[in-house]
Amino acid sequence: MNEIMMRQDAAPVIQSDAERFELIQRKAKMWASSKIVPAEYRNSVADCTIALDMADRIGVSPMFVMQNLYVVKGRPTWSGQACIAIIRNCGRFDHVRVVYVRDKDGTPTGCRIVARQVADGSEVSGTLVTLEMAAAEGWGPKWRTIPEQMLAYRAASFFARVYCPDMLMGMWSEGEPEDVERNRAAAPNPFAEPQAIEAPQQSASIELSELQKEQVTFDAID
């Protein structure tokens, strides 16, 4: 299975070799004509070419990229399970574990990825992602419906960004584009022009009326 998911003999970047780029394009035409590939890639030679390029760069099968890469909010986004699969199969880690933190009732409240680095045998741990963090950041509705799954997905994304960011190629993972867009829409604009504060008209009229009464009183005394 590892040979299918992650190839250790990844080819060089295709843009560095014109002949190889032409070969990839010919392959992309074959992939685009297939009925097995996801609908987004059918009859799209350009998208298939990009998918094959990405597969070459990170050493995975083209089908893995096509099945796990989506465009959300205008940005290419990895599926949640893709991050976990990349960590497990990139060859840099072994003994990869999804570790949950649970409350006294056994309900998961947090999650982190723990693994051992093949290079030196040291154990590394990813950021602990918690439901409290999700609530504070205002993350989406899936955190209420499938919290255990979302904890694992986000924990894998955080781990990969620290220990193998090149494998994600700078892309977000499932749920992140929506969360960022939601927070951006809710945040105040720090560069917005301050609005002028107008004095309340009613208060001004009341104060003027009081001054007029005082003036009348003084006139009567004189």
Results as ranks from 00 to 15, higher is better:
9 D>M: 07
161 R>K: 06
119 A>D: 09
52 L>H: 04
43 N>M: 01
123 E>H: 09
75 R>C: 14
16 S>F: 09
49 T>S: 06
110 G>Y: 01
90 C>E: 02
126 G>F: 01
174 E>I: 05
32 A>W: 01
221 I>D: 09
16 S>P: 10
144 R>K: 06
13 V>C: 11
6 M>E: 05
149 Q>C: 14
193 E>D: 12
37 V>M: 03
35 K>G: 05
12 P>L: 09
173 S>N: 00
201 Q>A: 05
46 A>V: 10
191 F>P: 06
33 S>Y: 03
134 A>P: 00
102 R>S: 03
123 E>V: 07
118 V>Y: 04
185 A>T: 11
135 A>W: 09
54 M>P: 02
40 E>C: 07
141 P>V: 11
181 E>A: 15
69 L>I: 05
121 G>T: 13
124 V>W: 00
56 D>S: 15
23 L>F: 05
220 A>T: 12
197 I>K: 13
152 A>G: 09
126 G>D: 04
165 P>M: 01
89 N>D: 11
148 E>I: 09
123 E>I: 08
130 T>I: 08
149 Q>F: 12
210 E>W: 09
31 W>C: 07
196 A>S: 04
211 L>Y: 08
187 A>P: 10
209 S>D: 09
44 S>P: 00
4 I>M: 10
176 E>Q: 09
185 A>Y: 10
202 Q>H: 05
132 E>V: 13
83 C>I: 08
190 P>R: 02
177 P>I: 06
58 I>C: 01
1 M>I: 14
194 P>Q: 06
203 S>I: 08
7 R>K: 13
176 E>D: 12
41 Y>G: 05
128 L>S: 01
61 S>L: 05
36 I>K: 15
183 N>Q: 15
53 D>G: 15
126 G>C: 03
62 P>D: 04
107 T>K: 12
42 R>D: 05
42 R>I: 06
148 E>Q: 12
179 D>E: 07
76 P>Y: 02
190 P>I: 02
41 Y>M: 08
153 Y>D: 04
168 L>F: 04
194 P>G: 08
143 W>M: 04
208 L>I: 09
139 W>D: 06
177 P>W: 04
30 M>A: 13
74 G>A: 08
36 I>P: 02
145 T>V: 10
81 Q>R: 15
149 Q>Y: 14
65 V>H: 01
146 I>M: 07
147 P>C: 03
109 T>R: 11
127 T>Q: 14
118 V>N: 05
127 T>F: 07
131 L>Y: 00
81 Q>V: 10
6 M>C: 09
58 I>H: 01
94 D>G: 08
202 Q>P: 00
192 A>S: 11
6 M>A: 11
56 D>C: 03
153 Y>P: 03
222 D>W: 10
192 A>G: 06
28 A>T: 03
153 Y>H: 07
52 L>K: 01
10 A>S: 14
